[in-house]
């Protein structure tokens, strides 16, 4: 059925509406003006030099990167282990356990934020790196598990069985049979997890204390006063997200072709 003009127009307008924020922010970041006018009166890199010259933003970037690196690696390890256990082993109350792991993705983040704020305040984890890593790992684990559940379910169990039959230990089976084939999925899961941690703002704003991350700094600037430096930050975030996802997609595609 070919859609009529009205349907086509509404659809194209909706698509335009969807990507408008992305296509507005990028040219704004190269503006030479300090006012928020669009289109920019002239081009310059002043907001990028203001970003890289600001100790606040640079240290926030380092904190974000370190936090995302630790949390996504830990989340990948724990999440894919749990996913393997849930897919391959018989477990009592499996549904409940799985829902429990997925809950932080489904519940509004503000609930997790206030719960962690109050609980961490009582046990002294507020404003600590350990508290932040715990929170980020819990929030990104569901994304790792979504990717890895698909991977383990589509992975032929017989390959593992053959390997065991031929006398390989579980460790060898993992290292030589399972992991090499699931490498691309693990990489994709890790990238999703990293991006997710790097962008997390609600829980971080509640529990980070004196730690400052890029989204937290951005959020507080957006609430108080807006400097055009934010356009540069936003553009860098867009570029970073697109590059990571493109990398992950490319590696996933290549793995599909070789199989």
């Amino acid at each position: 059925m070919t859609p009529n003009y009205a349907v086509r127009t509404v659809a194209i307008v909706t698509l335009g509406f969807l990507i408008l924020p992305v296509i507005i922010v990028i040219p704004m970041s190269f503006s030479s003006a300090s006012s928020m006018s669009f289109p920019p009166p002239g081009l310059s890199l002043r907001w990028y030099s203001s970003f890289f010259g600001s100790s606040v933003w640079v240290s926030a970037t380092i904190t974000s990167a370190v936090l995302a690196l630790i949390s996504s690696t830990l989340g990948l390890l724990l999440g894919s282990m749990a996913s393997y256990g849930l897919c391959r082993r018989r477990i009592m109350q499996r549904g409940i356990i799985e829902s429990n792991f997925m809950a932080p993705m489904i519940l509004p983040t503000i609930i997790t934020a206030v719960a962690l704020y109050i609980a961490f305040a009582k046990i002294g984890l507020l404003g600590t790196l350990i508290g932040l890593v715990m929170a980020h790992t819990i929030l990104l684990v569901p994304y790792v598990m979504v990717v890895m559940n698909v991977a383990f379910r589509s992975f032929d169990l017989r390959q593992e069985q053959v390997s065991w039959t031929m006398g390989a230990s579980w460790y060898t089976t993992m290292r030589r049979v399972v992991l090499p084939q699931l490498g691309p999925n693990l990489f994709a899961a890790w990238v999703f997890a990293f991006v997710h941690s790097f962008d997390e703002v609600v829980v971080t704003s509640f529990i980070a204390g004196t730690y400052n991350t890029v989204p937290k700094q951005m959020f507080s600037e957006l609430i108080l006063e807006i400097s055009p430096t934010i356009t540069a930050v936003a553009t860098l975030l867009i570029a970073f997200t697109v590059a990571s996802l493109a990398g992950a997609t490319l590696i996933m595609k290549r793995s599909v072709q070789t199989v």
């Binding site: 408008l20 991006v195 962008d199 703002v201 936003a234 975030l237």
Partner: peptide, 16 residues
Amino acid sequence: PFWISVLVRTYAWIVV
């Protein structure tokens, strides 16, 4: 846009 930070997408509307 689904993958781009909610902050970035929200911020753009201030400009628009």
